[in-house]
């Protein structure tokens, strides 16, 4: 499968344009890294690809087809701050099951302890919460994952561990990954190919 963004232009207000004629293609058996400076519009692009922002020009297609807005969205975004993506009044079990119910082996693979499931989101650390976010995103219906700086709150060793598990799972299930970061060393290690945001953004 192929996730394509064609000639995407976007601006939050009239004064400053963020994206201009931006085109990008991700294949589902590859891991593409996208590197750019802070504030360059990486997160905005991620939100457009994952269907969070809709008032852009240009189009995002999956295998040449527009992605329907109803139902489970096949392009899932993993946010930089996991604590903001969880309802503070929900137990972690409900948070996890909102997307799907991952089998026990998968929970073990990502180092999710069973006792965390009965906790509130504010009782777990950022790294623990991010494991939940990743597990939520790898729903069987997911075709692509947009990882927007998902490992910035982790130490180097844990970063690599989590990325390795995510990549293994993605390769096995034919899920494409777009890894967005401003950390060249990390992208160097995990990605098949690295794109530079400013070079493909025609501003």
């Amino acid at each position: 499968m192929e996730l394509k963004a064609n000639n995407i232009s976007f601006s939050y207000n009239k004064r400053r344009q963020i994206l201009k004629d931006f085109s990008l293609s991700v294949d589902s058996n590859r891991i593409i890294g996208l590197m750019g400076d802070s504030g360059s519009g990486k997160s905005t692009l991620c939100k457009i690809l994952a269907g969070y922002l809709t008032h852009y020009s240009g189009e995002v297609t999956l295998d040449g087809n527009k992605i329907p807005d109803r139902g489970f969205y096949p392009v899932q975004l993993i946010f930089q701050h996991p604590e903001k993506t969880m309802n503070p009044k929900w137990k972690m079990e409900k948070v996890l099951n909102e997307s799907w119910t991952p089998p026990k082996e998968l929970r073990d693979t990502f180092g999710l302890k069973d006792q965390w499931l009965t906790r509130w989101p504010n009782e777990l650390s950022g790294g623990e919460l991010q494991r939940f976010s990743i597990l939520r995103a790898i729903n069987p219906e997911t075709k692509f994952i947009i990882a927007d700086e998902i490992s910035t709150m982790l130490d180097a060793v844990t970063q690599v561990q989590i990325w390795e598990k995510l990549i293994n799972h993605a390769k096995a299930n034919n899920i494409g990954i777009l890894a967005v970061s401003h950390d060249p060393e990390l992208l160097e290690v995990i990605c098949d190919d690295i794109l530079f945001f400013d070079e493909i953004n025609n501003l």
């Binding site: 994952a50 269907g51 969070y52 109803r70 139902g71 489970f72 969205y73 899932q76 975004l77 946010f79 701050h81 903001k84 993506t85 969880m86 309802n87 503070p88 009044k89 929900w90 909102e98 997307s99 939520r136 729903n139």
Partner: peptide, 24 residues
Amino acid sequence: EYVALSKRFGKSKLWIAKEHILPL
């Protein structure tokens, strides 16, 4: 963000109102 994410998981507005917003 959790409501936006819930929509991307394919949940309906009514479901979100009942499960996400009402408890809060």
